[in-house]
Nucleic acid binder design. Structure first.
Lengths: 212, 212
DNA sequence: GTCTATAAGGAGATAGAC
DNA sequence: GTCTATCTCCTTATAGAC
């Protein structure tokens, strides 16, 4: 087993432990136990427990969560903007519902980073926002629409809305409330776009009868 | 010093320690040190460290944060709905900016509660939502408006938006972005109200020329 | 390079003096 | 009721055997 394999396995084990038992319970012993390694082996791969936690933050940032958004829009090019946005957010909600502990772990790690490694927390959210911005641009292109706000501002708002949705659902576990919430959000964001062919329309169902 | 005084002082000291150094650093020794008490005294007031943390959650829930919302609307009865909502959210943003560690502490304690005492986390957010709902009703009454959505759904959305705003600002500390965000939110929420006198208008500046 | 054994210290909680 | 001293357990990290 190579150095990199062990490193990756330790990060993965740490994420599993944090998701299952919380960050406070993610001791070096618990992590190596999860990974099936002797305790000392952690320290010739990472210089300290904190170094491992920082690696966990980077790993979560690059692989987790908002990927669900990108997958959905691909599959719905012929519907209205409201529906596409709602479907994307609904996909995220299902991800959250199917793995709440993982999202909670993400929150704990982010809070840890805000205190012990603020730039890492900053990067984490910048990555989320960039992913959302990409998705929003993709949607606009596919549907021949244009956002009436800078896409970075819009991505900021959408990311923030998803954060709020996450905290709401984690505290009340009320899927119906979350779906009503998503519907309202979709309407709000859909109103911030206009068709390129028919600039006054904001519904998303572009007429397609005009010239280019 | 009475039992209740010591209890209150310990809770207060715990909040200070958590805000300054994080929940993980809030050991029983650190807390009694902050309170200027001997270590053992904690355990004939609270049965365990976790019991103290639970008391901290209840304390934070009842006294912190969203009170800023209520203070502001009182002072602005003659402006448009958009402005009133923006002013209230701006007041919250200033509270956040003036004491970020305290909001971060709140987040850490909430994450802890989601794992170790879910009903407490639920109550915490229910309290937030109830406070916001009250404020929204008060605004509607004062301005002779009516919300076009159930006020509980609206409170859910607004609370969620504030949660998102909090996480956004905590990660990027970008006050300008937060203010743009608030302006958009205020517009969105203002659009969900109609004047009682002139039901088609959603701007908030009610004409006042009609009959009742 | 890999693992075992252990060091050194901090944690929550309690027993017992006053 | 109040505080001191201490018990026991578990933590991160390392020294040294293989």
């Amino acid at each position: 087993m190579t150095f990199d394999q062990r490193r990756a396995e330790l990060i993965d084990a740490a994420i599993r432990v944090i998701a299952r038992d919380g960050l406070a319970a993610a001791t070096t012993r618990a992590i190596v136990g999860e990974a099936g390694m002797p305790q000392g082996s952690l320290f010739y791969i990472f210089s300290s427990r904190d170094a491992l936690i920082s690696a966990v933050i980077e790993e979560i940032t690059t692989t987790e969560r908002r990927g669900a958004l990108l997958s959905v829009e691909m599959s719905a090019p012929d519907r209205g903007l409201h529906e596409v946005l709602a479907a994307a957010m609904d996909a995220y909600l299902r991800l959250l519902q199917s793995n709440p502990d993982r999202e909670l772990a993400l929150l704990e790690v982010a809070a840890h980073a805000m205190r012990h490694d603020p730039p890492a927390a900053h990067r984490q959210w910048q990555t989320y926002r960039a992913t959302v911005a990409e998705a929003l641009s993709f949607i606009a292109d596919t549907m021949s629409m244009r956002w009436t706000l800078p896409v970075t501002d819009l991505a900021h708002m959408v990311t923030s809305a998803l954060d709020g949705l996450t905290l709401s659902w984690l505290t009340d576990r009320d899927g119906d409330a979350a779906r009503r919430h998503i519907d309202l959000l979709a309407g709000t964001f859909a109103a911030l776009a206009v068709s390129e062919h028919n600039p006054v329309s904001a519904t998303g169902a572009s007429p397609q009868g005009e010239t280019v």
